[in-house]
């Protein structure tokens, strides 16, 4: 791991944490699951996927999820934040690897966003034992919107990053 790569990943991780902080300031979308997020920070994992490959993205993902709960002081939220992040990111990786020639990063991000919120809702429902599935009515569209926003941001960021940035 070169210093450049290390710095790049560290930069992405801290940016992701800032986005997490901003997200928590929004009104709680997931009132039944304290600590559940919109998934905006996935923007950085997605960018890391393009600059540093699958592993780079996983590194940013794992560290940002763990640290964001350390900062929030809410380790219980890891029960739904971690699976949601991993499932959402893994599916996005598969889509990128298989279909990037045909599908843009925007729709991949949308799928990731929806999956992220769906996973959070499912796990919170299993944990509490209460039927929370009616809540997908607004969590899924919000995931769609978040994914759309992240996808467009990722596209323009990656399109304009200078060549030098990608150096290992």
């Amino acid at each position: 791991m070169t210093a450049k790569k290390l710095t790049r990943l560290a930069l992405f991780t801290s940016l992701a944490l800032i986005l997490s902080l901003v997200e928590s300031a929004l009104p709680p979308l997931f009132w039944f699951a304290p600590g559940a997020k919109l998934g905006l920070a996935n923007l950085l994992s997605l960018i890391a996927l393009f600059t540093d490959g699958v592993v780079g993205g996983y590194v940013v993902l794992a560290i940002r999820i763990l640290l964001s709960q350390v900062f929030a002081g809410n380790f219980f939220a890891l029960v739904y934040a971690l699976p949601a992040g991993v499932i959402s990111y893994t599916v996005q990786v598969l889509l990128v690897k298989l279909f990037i020639k045909k599908i843009g990063v925007v729709s991949i991000s949308i799928v990731g966003g929806v999956l992220h919120n769906l996973t959070q809702t499912v796990i919170a429902s299993l944990i509490t034992g209460v039927n929370l599935y009616s809540l997908v009515i607004y969590t899924l569209p919000m995931g769609f919107a978040a994914g759309l926003f992240v996808g467009i941001s990722a596209y323009f960021t990656l399109k304009h990053l200078p060549e030098k940035f990608y150096e290992k």
């Binding site: 393009f50 600059t51 540093d52 490959g53 990128v96 990037i100 990656l158 399109k159 060549e163 990608y166």
Partner: peptide, 9 residues
């Protein structure tokens, strides 16, 4: 640059 990044560009 990773292959997927080239593709995206």
């Amino acid at each position: 640059m990773t292959p997927q990044a080239e593709q995206l560009k």
